[in-house]
Design a protein around this nucleic acid. Structure first.
Ligand SMILES: [Mn+2]
Ligand SMILES: [Mn+2]
Ligand SMILES: [Zn+2]
Ligand SMILES: [Zn+2]
Lengths: 135, 135
DNA sequence: AATACAAACGCAAGTCATTTGCGTTTGTAT
DNA sequence: ATACAAACGCAAATGACTTGCGTTTGTATT
């Protein structure tokens, strides 16, 4: 009995490998990068299978989906990692994950001001990484 | 001599109207909403003209582009309005603009920690608006 | 181990926002 | 008034997914 079965999903080699790939990554990965990772593991599945697997894993909250680079690509990450922020290099698109969150108090204030019920936030910080900023 | 000409762009009715529509909006608008706004002004242009105009206006920094709802649609806003954040209703996709920014000090700390040169950030807060949260 | 069946898959076609090629029109400088 | 790069209209192309459908497979049951 693994985490897939526990979530009511069938244990397929693609899904298990996707989870492992995301677990071992220290940054969010695009569907394409995940697809490439599978190929490197000699797991050859259709792209639609990758997308369907990612959707299922998101629905079951085993992974998280985010959209951080500003273009139309989504990114995915293993989801035992809690609340995160990202620092993105605008040139090379490198993504650094940041653990600290300075916004809890700010959210509370906003709830009072706007009468919204706030469920969360996304914060992405942009800049030039040490390697790119010298060029 | 208007802001379009000053930026080296030709002054066309579509571009002038797009600027006015965005100036008068209190929230970011999608390309589609802008297109609809033009139609209401009796300005009938091709959708590709709208996209090309938005790209040109972004390049010249007369407007800003953002991607806030998580889906593949982009939003645009008039760009004399400074740094902003958004509060988005996850149900009806309503967007509230927020002026206050609590992150200046946080950015400074991050620069020291990561050695990035930080150029900015995007903060979007998600929740349920007063109208949607009762349903 | 064999059976049964919903879930998952492969493949091809479809979607949707946006982009692009190309021939024609137009804003602006001369 | 003329010239011409810039902008436009239109149709086709893109890219990241999504979906319909017929076939295969993981898992529960005999
Ligand atoms: Mn946070
Ligand atoms: Mn801010
Ligand atoms: Zn970089
Ligand atoms: Zn709402």
């Amino acid at each position: 009995m693994n985490s897939l079965n526990r979530s009511g999903l069938k244990n397929t080699k693609a899904r298990a490998a996707i989870l492992k790939i995301l677990q071992q990554s220290n940054r969010p990965l695009s569907a394409e990068e995940i697809y490439d990772g599978l190929v490197k593991c000699n797991i050859h599945v259709n792209a639609s299978t990758v997308y369907r697997a990612l959707t299922a894993l998101c629905d079951k909250k085993l992974i998280g989906k985010t959209n951080v680079t500003g273009d139309k690509k989504s990114f995915f990450e293993y989801n035992a990692k809690g609340h995160r922020h990202y620092l993105i290099c605008s040139e090379c698109k490198k993504i650094i994950t940041i653990e600290r969150c300075p916004l809890r108090a700010y959210e509370k204030m906003l709830e009072l001001e706007t009468n919204f019920t706030i469920s969360g936030h996304k914060l992405s910080i942009y800049g030039s990484c040490p390697e790119c900023k010298d060029k």
